[in-house]
Design a binder for these strands. Structure first.
Lengths: 187, 187
DNA sequence: AATATTGTTAAAAATAAATTTAACGAACTT
DNA sequence: AAGTTCGTTAAATTTATTTTTAACAATATT
C-alpha cells in the first residue's frame, strides 16, 4: 500500500468520525422533542449525506426497509424531509431539510398550532358548562362560586394561547427575523 | 332527596366534565412535546385542582404513589411543578405552575439550551477533524474537497444555533414581550 | 405475459418504557 | 426506643412502541 493510500484512508476515517459526531448530536437533540432516536439518526444522516433512497438508508443505518419507510414518512409529516424527483428513475429520493430555520419553523409552529386549537376548543366547552352552573340560582352558593373560580382561571389562560398564536404568526411570516436577525458571523 | 340537592349534584357533574375537558386537552398537548401522557394528566390535574400531596394525586388519578413520585419529579425538573411548603406539616405539597408563560419559557429554553450546547460542541469537534484533512496536502484532492464541503455545511449551521441562543435570551429576559405583548382581551 | 424492482402494509417478535409491588429509610410521635 | 407516616428506590410486571419478517401491490423490464 502506498503512502498516499494510507493517508487517504486515515483521512476518510477522520471524516467518518466528524460525521458521526454531528449526526449523534442531531439525533440526541431530536430525542429531546419526542422524535424517536432512529428517526433522529436518519434525519442527521440525510442532513450530512444529502439525497438518499430507502435502500441507501437501510444500508447506512443497518436497518430494514420498512422501518426506513415509516421513519421517513414521520419525518416528512414534520416537514423535515422532502421527497425529491429524479427524472428517469422510478426510485424515490429523499432529502433532509438542510435549512434549520425552516425545520424549526415547521416543527414548532405545527405543534403549537395544534396546542392552541385543542386547548381553545376545550376551554370554550368547559367555560360553557361552568357558565351554566354559575348562572343557575337553583344551585348552592358555594358550588356556584367554585364554578366561577374555575371559569376565571381557564378564561385567563386564553391569554397565553392567544399570545402563542401571535408568536406562530410572527415566526411563520418571518417577521421575527426583523427583531432577531440571523447573524452571519459564525466563526 | 330535595330539589336543591339534585341541582347541586348535577352542577357538580357538569363541573367535573368541564375540568376533564381542560385536563385532557393539556395532557394531549404535552404528549406532543414528549411528556408522557400520565405526567401530562398529572400536570393538568394539578393545574386545575391546585396544591396536592402525593396521596391526593394517587387517589385522583387512580395510580400508585411511586409513579406519582417519579412523575412529579419529572415535572419539577421541567420547572412545571414546584414544591410548596406548608408550616406544621411534614407532608410535601406540590403546585403546578399556573402561569403558562413561565411554563413555556422554562420548558423550551431548557431544551433549546441543551440543543445549542450539544450541537456546538459536536460541530467544533467535527470541524477540527475536517480541518486537519483539508490542510493535509498528503491527502488526495477529492477527499480534501469533500472534507471542505462538509466543513462549510456544518459551520454554516452554527448560524442557526447562534440565532437560537439569542432567541433564548430574548425569551428568558422577557424582552420578547416588548415585541409581542401579552394581550388582555381574552373574551 | 412472466419476472424484477420498489415501496407499503400487517402480523409477529424484540425492545424499551411505564407502572406496580415490595422493601427500605428518614423523620416524626408516643 | 418502638411504632407511624411519608417518600423513595429497586426489581418485577405490564404495557406500549419500535423493528423485523413476510406477504402484497404497483410499476417497470424482459
Amino acid at each position: 500500500m502506498t503512502e498516499q493510500l494510507k493517508n487517504d484512508e486515515r483521512a476518510l476515517e477522520v471524516i467518518e468520525q466528524a460525521k458521526e459526531a454531528v449526526i449523534s448530536a442531531i439525533a440526541e437533540t431530536m430525542d429531546l422533542y419526542g422524535v424517536t432516536h432512529s428517526a433522529g439518526r436518519l434525519y442527521g444522516t440525510m442532513y450530512i449525506e444529502g439525497e438518499m433512497t430507502l435502500d441507501q438508508m437501510k444500508d447506512r443505518l443497518g436497518m430494514t426497509k420498512p422501518s426506513m419507510s415509516t421513519a421517513v414518512k414521520k419525518l416528512q409529516s414534520n416537514a423535515m424531509v422532502q421527497r425529491t424527483w429524479k427524472k428517469g428513475s422510478r426510485r424515490e429520493y429523499f432529502t433532509a431539510e438542510r435549512d434549520f430555520f425552516k425545520s424549526f419553523i415547521a416543527f414548532y409552529c405545527e405543534k403549537w398550532k395544534r396546542e392552541v386549537e385543542m386547548n381553545l376548543v376545550a376551554i370554550d366547552k368547559a367555560a360553557k358548562g361552568l357558565e351554566s352552573v354559575m348562572n343557575n340560582d337553583q344551585v348552592s352558593r358555594g358550588i356556584r362560586d367554585y364554578a366561577g373560580n374555575l371559569h376565571e382561571q381557564i378564561i385567563d389562560s386564553k391569554k397565553y394561547y392567544k399570545w402563542l398564536s401571535r408568536l406562530i404568526d410572527l415566526i411563520e411570516s418571518g417577521e421575527i427575523f426583523q427583531f432577531l436577525p440571523i447573524e452571519d458571523d459564525a466563526r
